[in-house]
Simulated assay, not measured.
Amino acid sequence: MTETPSPDGCRSGVELQIERVIVASLEQATVHVRCLRGPVRRGARFNRLSGSARALDLTLTQAVVYGHRVPALDAGLTAFVTLRGKGVQTLLSGTPASGGQVIQGTNLLP
């Protein structure tokens, strides 16, 4: 899959839909997600949350698909991810009506 570079040419946009928050602490959460726009690589930074004006500064530190750690998530995949940073308390599990929150951010290109 090809990534879409941002105007500065060094980042690409990514999106994850929050399906379920499994465990959350003050600075880290394990979350079941669906990748809407990717690939989302380990180290991706998320700074926007759908339907909220609250600031986020989250880093994806781990992704697990079918029990295996993976370096990236392609669009359409579901996974358990670990997010660390400011704003994990604002993440909520999705409902059939809401479809779940979407977090948006960027990958640094290799």
Rank of each mutant, 00 (worst) to 15 (best):
M1N: 12
T2F: 11
E3C: 09
T4C: 05
T4Q: 14
T4V: 06
T4N: 12
P5R: 09
P7L: 08
G9C: 05
G9S: 09
S12I: 06
G13W: 10
V14W: 05
V14K: 04
V14C: 11
E15F: 02
Q17Y: 00
Q17S: 02
I18A: 00
I22M: 10
S25T: 15
L26H: 07
Q28S: 14
T30A: 13
C35L: 03
C35V: 01
L36M: 07
R37T: 08
G38V: 00
G38E: 00
P39I: 01
P39W: 00
V40E: 02
R41N: 03
R41V: 02
R41P: 00
R42M: 06
R42T: 09
R42Y: 03
R42G: 02
G43L: 08
A44M: 08
R45L: 14
F46T: 01
N47Q: 09
R48D: 07
L49K: 01
L49V: 01
S50L: 08
G51N: 12
S52N: 14
A53P: 06
A53G: 14
A55L: 12
A55F: 11
A55E: 15
L56H: 06
T59E: 12
L60F: 05
T61S: 10
A63Q: 12
A63L: 09
V64T: 07
V65K: 12
Y66V: 05
H68M: 12
R69K: 13
V70P: 10
V70H: 08
P71V: 00
P71Y: 07
P71A: 03
A72R: 14
A72M: 13
A72H: 10
L73N: 10
L73E: 05
D74S: 13
D74I: 03
D74H: 11
A75R: 09
A75E: 11
A75W: 01
L77S: 13
A79Y: 06
A79E: 04
A79T: 04
A79H: 06
F80N: 15
F80D: 15
L83H: 02
G85P: 08
V88S: 08
Q89P: 00
L92W: 05
S93Y: 13
S93C: 10
S93L: 11
G94D: 07
T95L: 09
P96N: 11
A97P: 03
G99T: 01
Q101P: 13
I103P: 10
I103D: 09
I103M: 12
G105D: 02
N107R: 02
N107Q: 05
L108Q: 13
P110M: 02
